[in-house]
């Protein structure tokens, strides 16, 4: 008995060794659009012989793996081309796949290279959700959100928030949100209000998104608080400080300020610009509130 076990072990070790060596110089062929032999939802629906819902689950997993894989990949050819067709198939196969609409729109809107950077497609997807999966105020809210956060079209955002508020069972904070959006769109406080609502979401992914955004908003608050100090230095010295240390010493700052994740802010001595460090998980900050945190240069 011992002899076959040894032989199996030796051969298996050999097989593993060959794989390790081979895999150094090889990766499976990735055609430009690898995933979708069948791009038509109705055709696929017939092909899966009634297992629509299961097929939708499988395509959803593929969409998630595709998105995740692309997001972590590096290289010039990075593209999310197949993401929308995949999501389209998922939601054709199962029109009530709520997660696919909501997460899918996040994947699509997220700025490139972390996401497809396609808010237009996100809105298209969510509108399909509204058409196919009736009466869900969340889709209206999500569209409003895309307008607010990514397209900075506060008028449109408020319109969608209001439409959402008219849906049965809609959250009661939608109406006030619409009002605030109209009045003070683009302000950090309004943004904070929206993300805080999303903290109550029953979806972990949405909650963690909200936590991240709120932390970014906190970081921007800090930057906004430090910017007047920097402005004071620039006004007095008629130049940008050479480093954080110089600024801190001159303005008697206790220490180099850090973002909510504990990573110190970085300071660009050429542009006089305070930002979260690229090492921080909060990087990059959304551009919307830059105006509030950019000092007047000499």
């Amino acid at each position: 008995m011992a002899a076959p076990v040894v032989l199996v072990a030796v051969l298996l070790a050999g097989a593993v060794g060959v794989q390790v060596v081979r895999d150094r110089g090889w990766s499976p062929y990735q055609p430009p659009n690898p995933l979708l032999w069948v791009q038509s939802g109705p055709l696929l629906q017939r092909l899966v012989l009634g297992f629509d819902s299961l097929a939708a689950d499988i395509y959803w997993m593929r969409a998630v793996v595709y998105y995740g894989g692309k997001r972590r990949a590096t290289g010039p050819q990075l593209s999310y081309d197949a993401l929308y067709p995949l999501l389209d198939l998922v939601t054709s196969l199962d029109p009530h796949f709520r997660v696919a609409y909501r997460f899918g729109s996040v994947f699509l809107t997220e700025a490139y290279p972390a996401g497809a950077g396609r808010p237009d497609l996100a809105i298209q997807l969510l509108q399909r959700g509204i058409a196919r999966d009736h009466g869900r105020w969340e889709y209206f809210y999500d569209i409003g959100f895309v307008y607010y956060w990514w397209l900075r079209d506060y008028q449109k955002a408020a319109e969608w928030f209001l439409k959402g508020a008219e849906q049965p069972g809609a959250a009661e904070w939608l109406k006030p949100l619409a009002a605030t959006t109209l009045a003070t769109g683009g302000h950090r406080e309004t943004s904070r209000q929206m993300w805080t609502q999303l903290l109550n979401s029953d979806m972990t992914f949405i909650r963690s998104q909200a936590e991240l955004r709120l932390a970014q908003l906190d970081a921007m608050d800090t930057i906004a608080a430090v910017t007047p100090v920097l402005q004071r230095f620039i006004d007095r010295e008629q130049r940008i400080p050479r480093s954080w240390q110089e600024l801190a010493a001159a303005e008697r700052l206790a220490r180099v300020p850090a973002d909510p994740t504990g990573v110190p802010f970085v300071f660009d001595p050429k542009l006089g610009f305070i930002d979260v460090s690229p090492k921080s998980r909060l990087w990059p900050l959304p551009i919307e509130s830059r105006a509030h945190v950019t000092p007047q240069l000499p």
Binding site: L12, G14, V18, Q19
Partner: peptide, 15 residues
Amino acid sequence: YTLAYGGLYAGVLLT
């Protein structure tokens, strides 16, 4: 390498 791997893996199974 792939042929070698196939041979070794078939060897494992046959053993």
